[in-house]
Structure formats: C-alpha cells, structure tokens
C-alpha cells in the first residue's frame, strides 16, 4: 500500500528531499490510522478473550488481546445461572426494541406522508409542533415524564419504555424529507386510478423510501437496545430488566471476582448488534450519512 502512495508523491514532486518529507508525512498518517484503529478495537477484543478465560485468570497480566483459551464455560454459567435469567433479559430487550422499531416505522412514515403529500387545514402548524419538539431533549423532560407515566400506572412495566417511544419527531422529519424527493406525478397517477390514500401510502409511496426507513429502523433499534437511563428510572423487578441495566446489576451481584462472567454477559448482549453490523454495514453507514446531510 505504502508503495502506491509513495509513487504518487514522487511523481508530484521532483526534488528528493521533498519526496522524503512526503514519505514521512505519509508514514505519520498511516501510523495514526493504525494506532487509532487498534485503540478503538482493543477493548472489545480484550473483553472477548478475557470472557473465554477461566474466571480465576481474568486478572492476568500481561493482558490478552487475542483469545488464548476457548473456555465457553463462562457463557454457559451466565446463561444457565439459576439466580439470573439471562435469556429473559435478552427477550425483554428484544421485545421492547422490536415493538418500538416497528411502531416508529409505521407512525413516523404515516405522519411524514401526510406532512409531505396531503393538504389539510393546520398542516404547517402541526408540522411546526413536530419540529419544535425535536428541540426538547429527552433528559430535559425526564422528571415530568416520569410523573406522567407514574400517574398512568405504567411505572415498573415495559409500557413505560414502549409508549413514549412509539413515535419520534426526528423520524417524521427524516422521512418527510424522503417523501418530498418523490415525483408528485406518482401521487396524481395513483389518485386517477382511484386508489385510496391508505393504498397510495402503503403500496405506492412507502416502498420508495426504503433507505430512509432502514436508517430510522437501525437507529431506533440501536437506541432502544442500548437504552440505560429509561430502564434505570422505570424498572424495579429483576424479571423486567433489559440487558444494559441487568449487566450493571449483574456486576454488583456477582462481584469483581467474577469478571469473566460479567464480560461474557456483555459479549452476549452486544453480539447480535455486532453480527448485524458485519452484514449490514452499508445500511448503517448510509443511514448516518443521510441524517448528516439532511440535517
């Protein structure tokens, strides 16, 4: 690789001294890239290799950044532990994330379609309400939201995490921008064919905003899967816990002595997401690019 860049430099600059300086600059850039990639990845590979070690050896130094043992026992212990129902945490996290994701894809795309393509009294005023609500971060209203949810009798239920996340103003905004890029003739043609508004939305328009839907879906799922403060505020019973909060409790419960078990638990909780990313990296990257450019 270095040879390619080196050649480019030397063709650009004739004097050997300059070429040498260019080569040094090139080396610095590559060192920076490689060191940063190692720093970013090393904690994850350390966690993986330590989770595969015998618990008594999880404090060993020098540390292993590459698996030297394949002791699946830690994973087995965590999954089958009679005190901690890890599969239940998995199910709780998955259930909430899936419901929230599907719900947001539906509610956001419906509202976005109406804001982009239907005409009705007060449309712009309603859209302004959605835009303005994007300015209010969740943490700023977590205290009154808690009181609302408590008064609805939803505290210590999964509804406390699901209901407020059924829609997102950001998702409406993102998808509205997508609907606006579609040609207006599509809508006219479908109307002339006598299609109902619901059919136009569902069968004509929705299939054409796939990239926006996949971006929103990925962000929503990740946000819910990794949510920590929400479950911390609302969930009190072990059997209702989601992964992130269960793991923090697990650490306190098992104590520092069982570091390997805690790390195995974390590996199990992030594994589905990492696996998904390896296959769907393109969509994740596209999604971030889309929100960045549209914002």
């Amino acid at each position: 690789m270095a040879t390619v860049s080196e050649r480019r430099i030397t063709t650009q600059r004739s004097r050997p001294g300059r070429a040498l300086a260019g080569f040094a600059g090139e080396a610095v850039i590559w060192a920076f890239l490689i060191i940063m990639a190692l720093i970013e990845f090393a904690p994850i590979s350390w966690m993986f290799s330590t989770s595969l070690r015998d618990p008594s050896r999880s404090f060993d130094l020098p540390p292993d950044f590459w698996p030297t043992a394949f002791n699946i026992g830690n994973y087995w212990t965590v999954i089958t532990s009679p005190d901690i129902d890890f599969l239940l945490f998995f199910w709780n996290s998955l259930k909430i994330a899936l419901i929230v994701t599907v719900a947001q894809l539906i509610t956001c795309s419906m509202a976005a379609f109406a804001f982009a393509r239907l005409r009705f009294r007060g449309r712009d005023a309603f859209f302004f309400v959605f835009l303005a609500s994007m300015m209010v971060p969740w943490t700023v209203i977590m205290v009154p939201t808690f009181i609302v949810i408590r008064n609805l009798g939803l505290s210590n239920t999964h509804w406390a995490l699901i209901l407020p996340a059924l829609t997102s103003a950001f998702g409406v905004f993102l998808l509205r921008q997508q609907f606006l890029t579609l040609p207006a003739e599509l809508m006219d043609a479908a109307k002339i064919d006598g299609a109902s508004y619901f059919r136009i939305y569902w069968q004509v328009m929705l299939p054409l905003v796939g990239p926006g839907l996949s971006a929103l879906g990925i962000f929503t799922f990740l946000g819910s899967w990794n949510n920590f403060l929400g479950p911390l505020l609302y969930l009190r019973d072990w059997d209702k816990f989601t992964f992130p909060i269960a793991i923090i409790q697990l650490e306190g419960y098992m104590g520092m002595g069982n570091r390997a078990h805690v790390l195995a638990g974390i590996m199990i909780s992030i594994f589905p997401v990492l696996l998904f990313f390896l296959f769907a990296q393109r969509f994740v990257i596209q999604g971030i690019a889309m929100t960045g450019l549209k914002g």
Binding site: M36, A37, L38, E40, F41, P43, I44, L222, W225, N226, F228, F243, P244, I245, I247, I248, I266, S269, I270, V273, L274, F277, Q281, V284, I285
Partner: peptide
C-alpha cells in the same frame, strides 16, 4: 474497527 464501539451499549 473504528466504528465498532459506536454500536455497543454505553453503560456496559
């Protein structure tokens, strides 16, 4: 490698 941490759970 550089993007992996973004996907993981902040608390964990």
């Amino acid at each position: 490698a550089i993007f992996f941490p973004v996907l993981t759970t902040t608390a964990s």
